[in-house]
Write a protein that binds this DNA or RNA. Structure first.
Lengths: 231, 231
DNA sequence: GATTTTTTGTCATCAAACTGTCATAATGGC
DNA sequence: GCCATTATGACAGTTTGATGACAAAAAATC
C-alpha cells in the first residue's frame, strides 16, 4: 500500500505528525501549507489522495475542495477533511463539497490510517494493499507475489503494476491512454502501442498457469480483465 | 509480546493499577513518579514504550513528551498519553507533541492492553522481544544471538537489526526507504543504496548455514524475507 | 591517550533485467 | 479481398541491483 498523499495543513506541528504517520504506514506524503501551494503541486502531479485541513489561511479548505471537485482532472482524487471540531454543520458542508471522509481532530494515528485505507479501498482499490484473486490467479501487493493455482508466476515491475490494476478493476474496459495514466503515471510520455507489448508480456507470463485468457482484447477500445470467456 | 514499558504517573493508586495490569499482560513495567525521574530512567535504558500521565507535578507530561521527541535517541519510543478527561484541547496538544495514542481515564484494562498492543505492533513489532525463527534460522533479541541450524552466525550491529526487522515481518516487501526508517531510524540521512550493501553483508553472513536464500530481492520494490524459493 | 580492530556509508563498475519502439505478421470486421 | 487494428519478435538504450574496494567513524584494546 503505497499511495502518494498530499497533506494540506498550515500548522507545522500537526503537519509533521501526519507526515510521519503516513510514512510509517508506507505512503509517500507531499506537503503544502496553503491551498494555493496545494493547487500548484496538484498541477504538477496528481496525488492518490488529499488530506485537507478545514481551516487554512487564505483560501479555505472547503473552497480548495470545491475547486478540485470542479476540475475534471482532479475530480477523481479522494479528499479527506481534517476538522477541529465535530460540528455537524461543518460535516454536512464538507460532504457537500465532495469530501470522501472526515476526520475530527484530535485523531489517533490509528484512526487516520483506518480511514485512509477505507477510502483508498473504495476509490482506488489497487492502492489499498489488499491481495486480489480471480479464479485462482492471486496477486498480493504486500509480499509482491503472484501465483496461479498456487504456482509462482514471474512478472516484471510494469507487468506487475498492470496486472494489479486490471485485477483491482475487473470486468471493465480500459483504453491504452487510461492504462498509461493509471499504471505508468499521469505524466509520462509513452507511445500508446507500448501498452500492447506489455499486455503481451503479461499474457506470456500468465500462460504457464493458463490464466492468460483473463486478459482480453476489446477491439477498438482497449483491454479488459474478465473471468467470462472472450467474445 | 513482552515489552519494557515505562509508566510515568504520580498518583500511586493509578500507577499500581497500571503496573499490575501490564504485568498481567506479560510486559515488564518500570515506574517513575515524575518527569525528572522518567528522564533519568530513560537515560539508563530505553524502554519499548512510555505510558505518560498528562498531569504531573513539576515538569508536565506534555513537556516530557516534547523533550523525548526532540532527542534522536528517544524519538522512536512510542508514547501513549493518559489524560484525565476527554478534553479536546488536551488531545490536540498531545498529538502535537508526538504522542502515538492517548487513553482517557478512566480506562478499562482491556482498552489499555488493546491500545498498547496496537501501538507496539505498529511501531516496533520486533520489540516484542521474543526470539524469532524461520526454517532453522533463529534470532534471539534477548541474548543478541543468531544461529542457523544451531550453528552460530556472526553479524554486525546493523545487520543484526536488519535481520531482526525482516524476520519480524516475513513475507513482505520493504522498500529501501522503509528499511532505512525501520532499521536505521526515521531521522537519519543515509543513501538509499547503502541498504544494498548491508543486505549483501547480511547474505554473506547467512551463507555459511545456507540461509542466505531467505533474503530476497524484489526488483523495483525492495527486499523481502521469505521461506518460499525465490521467484 | 594512542593504536588496533570493527563497523559503516559511499562509490565505481559490471552484469542482468527491464523498457520503449519499431517492423512485420496476423487477425478481425465489412 | 481490403482496411484497420492488434500480436509478435527483435533490438538498443536505460535502469537496477550486486559486488569489491576504500576511507571515515566508532569501539575496543592496550
Amino acid at each position: 500500500m503505497s499511495a502518494m498523499i498530499l497533506v494540506v495543513e498550515d500548522e507545522p506541528a500537526i503537519r509533521e505528525l501526519v507526515v510521519l504517520n503516513l510514512q510509517q504506514a508506507g505512503h509517500r506524503p507531499m506537503v503544502a501549507d496553503s491551498a494555493e501551494q496545494a493547487l500548484a503541486l496538484v498541477r504538477e502531479s496528481l496525488p492518490d489522495m488529499i488530506l485537507l485541513d478545514w481551516m487554512l489561511p487564505g483560501m479555505s479548505g472547503v473552497e480548495l475542495a470545491r475547486r478540485l471537485k470542479a476540475d475534471s482532472r482532479t475530480r477523481g482524487v479522494p479528499i479527506i477533511m481534517l476538522t477541529a471540531r465535530g460540528d455537524e454543520q461543518d460535516k454536512i458542508t464538507g460532504l457537500e463539497t465532495g469530501a470522501d471522509d472526515y476526520i475530527t481532530k484530535p485523531f489517533s494515528p490509528r484512526e487516520m490510517n483506518a480511514r485512509i485505507k477505507a477510502v483508498l479501498r473504495r476509490r482506488a482499490p489497487q492502492m489499498a494493499g489488499d491481495a486480489v484473486e480471480v479464479t485462482g490467479l492471486r496477486l498480493d501487493p504486500a509480499t509482491h507475489r503472484v501465483t496461479g493455482n498456487d504456482r509462482p508466476i514471474e512478472l516484471g515491475p510494469t507487468e506487475f503494476r498492470l496486472l494489479h490494476f486490471l485485477m483491482a478493476h475487473p470486468e471493465r474496459v480500459y483504453s491504452r491512454a487510461q492504462l498509461l495514466d493509471q499504471v505508468w503515471g499521469n505524466h509520462v510520455f509513452v507511445e500508446d502501442r507500448t501498452v500492447d507489448v506489455h499486455i503481451r508480456r503479461l499474457r506470456c507470463a500468465l500462460e504457464v498457469t493458463g490464466h492468460d485468457g483473463l486478459v482480453q482484447t476489446v477491439r477498438g477500445s482497449g483491454y479488459r480483465l474478465s473471468v467470462h470467456p472472450e467474445g
